[in-house]
Amino acid sequence: MPGPDASPVSEQQAGVACREPREGTAVAVRATLKRDLVLMLRRRSEVLNPLVFFALVITLFPIGISPDPALLASIAPGLLWVAALLAALLSLDSLFRSDFEDGSLEQLLLSPQPLPALVLAKVAVHWLLTGLPLALMAPVLGIMLSLPAGSYAVLALSLALGSASLSLIGAIGAALIVGLSRGGVLLSLLVLPLYIPVLIFGAGAVQAAILGAGVAAHLAILGALLAVALMFAPWAIAASLRISING
């Protein structure tokens, strides 16, 4: 660190004057997206854990219940959805925790940029590296549960749509418990009731595809749930973070 004489005083003079808030939300959001993506890709185990959990649970069911294809096919939509939902829930606890522990979270809250936009970037990364991989993996596990052939696309699509809502809703809970040392169970209690509509319509879409009924209505409702979550969750997450930091 240079002494006072070494620092370019005239250059700094401009910076020391009082500043007006600047725009630059897009830059900050992009930087947050990039930072979180890089962080998650450097901690691969955190990305892989929910996927491994999902695969393990689905693998155990045919062994534990019955290898009968007809029986498995009838429970497959619900099983796949429940397992994916729990896998997504597992990964939520760490969404804000490491930022909270190393002090980045207070810096995020002190940014002059709108907090809802910044947390939306964090949630988007969570979905990209948890919800989306789960949705892409589900058809493969569907084969193991002898899911009828026509329903794979609907399964992946419903999970992709639904898991985005799950990430958004779950992030509210994760933000509320970030200050607590053992909030895992509390997080489940907080968000599981809110997950139920997503689960009903998600599993319903796959069920409808198997029965040959129209899936559009189910997917439309999943889309509507996502739209509502996108509208309200960022503000709720931001408010929850403020409450947690205050406490």
Partner: peptide, 10 residues
């Protein structure tokens, strides 16, 4: 703040 706010993985 008290904690430096520096990400260990970055």
């Amino acid at each position: 703040g008290h904690s430096p706010g520096v990400k260990a993985a970055l």
